[in-house]
Design a protein around this nucleic acid. Structure first.
Length: 758
DNA sequence: AGGTTAGTAATTTTT
DNA sequence: TTACTAACCT
């Protein structure tokens, strides 16, 4: 405690109106500090030495980090380039950059602020030769990683059916997460995969990566940590550079990230980590909650500051979340206090329903009601445990005409056409990029099949040269037959030509030419599937994105590290996402459906993780609840369709763990069950008792359901109008559902009764 | 070489 | 139920 702090208790973070013009005389306490509460302020002003900030949900974690960053610069403790600020997501990095700039009152430039991976890439480009790469190494995406590993496994004579490659990939990633290169994996750890050959295959995979001048995501951290560990002069250099280190979402760090941080922090010991053990939900990706405990051990005399004043949620929500998370053991211990003056509010709702369809209807109804009473859709979210759950809600929302966006999902750069286009550019930039070459050599189909590819591989392996070179040699030596020969020759000449044109025409023009001349765009123009036009659109967008970069290499790196998708972001839309994707976000109203044993907590999590797995699920529930500012609506369905057939469910144990006095129970599975029993057996249909839910309709309740099916059939090709999506053309008809390519909204599936012929 | 069909598996996924 | 992969046929 410093002497000054006593005077600051009056300052609540949100109680100071923004934009109040200050008197000209500079205040002794900078404005940005007065906006903090005492704990936050302590976290910001403890500049020297190791500091651990345990920040509960909604306690102003980001504010502390950004203010601390700005404070370091404002007080002249460090130049921008002397602070290392690490986040997990690009979004978090961007947000921090913006907020620091806002405090500074000028753009924040020259910062080492970014994701672990981006920062490591930047560092590794300078030292690549120390791990056998060149500074122009390529970063592989998940597809490439798996393809490469499969090749290594095939070469090693592994039966890929008995030992699926994804399993080994996961193992290798776990090793990398723990900072273990192949030679440091102990034989004892290598028993359960492919008869103890995992380690050897890992070594083979790493060696192939080096041959190809590639690094996968794990390598970025692994290589950099290895370098810092084994090259004291390099480490000393970085120590000279970074005086202060800031780490966001510390509870999500894995071991290699921790080691990397620890090495870098050894210099000045000015490391500040901000995290919340109760929000650690990524152990399955290698995150180690123990890093928080280890922190105090590895950095003796570390100061610990707890942020416990929550400015986000109402008291009942906080109480419910706290009551729930209290069932976990081994917590560092934090208690969320309501920090708002208006913290009183509605109890958490727990709604039981007959089945998942009724659950979707309930959610839809309440959303409509909220909308009618003036709530913005952007302030409402549905948070589900697993991705497949979104479908039921999407269908319901489309029926109701409620605009929504699915957060997460397939990202722009993960689409097939974008990956293909990327692969073309990668071959252009790096002819030795075998994985990219393999991807596009027969896309579009040019008659270069397995046989031809195998022959190229043989030559490449025998002479230890890249595939493109091997292909050229084969052509020269006449080792290719008619069709494949002509096609391959044309492709290789094409690349020569495009590469030549690069300095003259620039990368954007060449990229466009390449996609045309290679026949790639033509392939999609010929494609009759309903997605094809959208894919062509995406390719246009791809080329547009390319114009924002000065060089091809810069673009490729951006795409490898920043896989983002911000379409559908505009407009007032409801958010639909997984609980994982919701971390760090907040909404007025949050729906938490599917709280049933097996789904949430997820059966798989408990099988694999036992008691620890269960606790992580509980933290996930805690994260979900604490996303809500004003109202949380939890629900469970008594019946749910699992892989096609209906099964009855047991309500989640988490429901019982919510403190009764803060919860209001509604609806009832029993009530719905009674309705069900009265129904004649015709309704129970073919697929078992629960196959089709009878339409028992309470007076006035399910208004939407009662609308009659349309009489006049709609055919493929018909131009139609939809209340929400506007005009579009029908691309497919299936029962009462229509696939429509909307002019504005893109491809959607809607019920025919919601469109009219245009 | 490429399309078709049968079999199988099915969370979460910041980079 | 659906979606993806691998063997199989043309």
């Amino acid at each position: 405690m410093t002497a000054r702090e006593g005077r600051l208790e009056a300052f609540a973070p949100r109680s100071i109106p923004a934009g109040v013009s200050a008197p000209p005389a500079p205040s002794p306490v900078p404005d940005y500090l007065t906006r903090l509460n005492p704990e936050q302020r302590e976290a910001v002003e403890t500049l020297d030495g190791p500091l651990l900030v345990l920040a509960g949900a909604g306690t102003g974690k980001t504010r502390v980090l950004t203010t601390r960053f700005a404070h370091l610069l404002m007080t002249g403790r460090a130049f921008p380039g002397q602070v290392l600020a690490v986040t997990f997501t690009n979004k978090a990095a961007r947000e921090m950059r913006e907020r620091v700039a806002a405090i500074l009152g000028r753009p924040a430039e020259g910062l080492w602020l970014g994701t672990f991976h981006a920062l490591c890439t930047r560092m590794l480009r300078r030292h690549a030769e120390l791990v056998g790469l060149t500074s122009a190494f390529t970063i592989l995406d998940t597809d490439d990683q798996l393809r490469l590993l499969k090749q290594v496994m095939e070469a090693g004579g592994i039966d890929l059916k008995r030992w699926p490659a994804p399993g080994l990939m996961a193992q290798i990633q776990r090793w990398k997460d723990r900072g273990l290169p192949p030679d440091r994996v102990t034989p004892a750890e290598d028993t359960d995969y492919a008869g103890g050959r995992a380690r050897a295959l890992y070594a083979g995979y790493q060696s192939r990566l080096r041959d190809l001048n590639c690094a996968d995501f794990g390598d970025l951290l692994l290589h950099m940590t290895e370098i810092l560990r084994t090259h004291p002069e390099v480490l000393a250099d970085w120590h000279r550079r970074f005086r202060y280190i800031l780490v966001d979402e510390y509870q999500d760090t894995n071991l290699v990230q921790y080691l990397w941080l620890r090495l870098l922090a050894q210099g000045h010991r000015n490391i500040c980590c901000v995290g919340d053990d109760d929000q650690s939900i990524y152990s399955w990706r290698g995150a180690e909650i123990e890093n928080i405990l280890r922190f105090e051990k590895d950095f003796p005399n570390a100061k610990v500051v707890r942020l416990e004043s929550n400015y986000r949620s109402t008291r009942p929500i906080l109480a419910a979340a706290s009551g729930l998370i209290a069932h976990n053991t081994g917590r560092l211990g934090k208690t969320l206090r309501a920090g708002r003056n208006d913290a009183d509010g509605e109890k958490v709702r727990v709604v039981s329903l007959w089945d998942s369809e009724e659950e979707a209807r309930m959610v839809g109804e309440r959303i409509e009601a909220a909308q009618r009473s003036g709530h913005a859709l952007a302030e409402i979210a549905i948070l589900v445990r697993a991705g497949f759950q979104t479908r039921a809600f999407e269908e319901r929302l489309i029926t109701l005409g409620v605009p929504y966006r699915v957060v997460g999902g397939l990202k722009f750069y993960e689409r097939a056409e974008i990956r293909d286009a990327m692969a073309y550019l990668r071959v252009l930039a790096q002819p030795a990029d075998d994985l990219a070459f393999e991807r596009i050599v027969n896309t579009p189909k040019r008659g270069i099949g397995d046989t031809a590819l195998r022959r190229m591989h043989e030559v490449a392996r025998a002479e230890r040269i890249p595939l493109t070179l091997a292909a050229a040699k084969l052509l020269q030596a006449g080792g290719m037959t008619g069709k494949a020969r002509a096609a391959l020759s044309e492709l290789l000449h094409g690349f020569d030509r495009w590469r030549e044109a690069l300095p003259k025409d620039g990368h954007v023009v060449v990229a466009a030419t390449l996609l045309d001349e290679s026949g790639y765009t033509e392939m999609w123009k010929q494609d009759k599937s309903p997605e094809a036009p959208g894919r062509l659109e995406n390719l246009k967008e791809f080329l547009r994105a390319l114009t924002e970069f000065e060089s091809l290499a810069g673009f490729l790196e951006h795409v490898a590290l920043v896989m983002e998708n911000d379409e559908n972001a505009e407009g007032d839309r409801l958010s639909l996402m997984t609980l994982h994707a919701a971390k760090g976000l907040e909404f007025d109203m949050v729906f938490l459906p599917g709280w049933e044993e097996g789904l949430f907590p997820h059966a798989r999590a408990m099988e694999e993780g036992g008691e620890k797995g269960l606790e992580e699920e509980r933290r996930l529930a805690y994260v979900g609840l604490t996303r809500a500012r004003k109202l949380a609506i939890v629900s469970c369905a008594a019946n749910r369709r699992v892989y096609g057939n209906w099964s009855t469910t047991v309500p989640s144990r988490f429901l019982d763990e919510l403190p009764l006095e803060h919860v209001q129970r509604e609806g009832s599975g029993a009530m719905a069950r009674n309705r069900m029993i009265d129904v004649p057996s015709v309704f129970t249909g073919t697929g078992g008792l629960m196959a089709r839910r009878p339409r028992v309709i309470e007076a006035g309740a399910w208004e939407v359901q009662q609308r009659p099916a349309r009489q006049d059939a709609i055919a493929v090709g018909q131009r139609v109008f939809h209340q929400k999506f506007g005009y579009g053309r029908v691309t497919a008809v299936e029962d009462d559902k229509l696939d429509i390519e909307f002019e504005k909204a893109g491809q959607k599936r809607v019920l025919d009764r919601f469109v009219e012929k245009a």
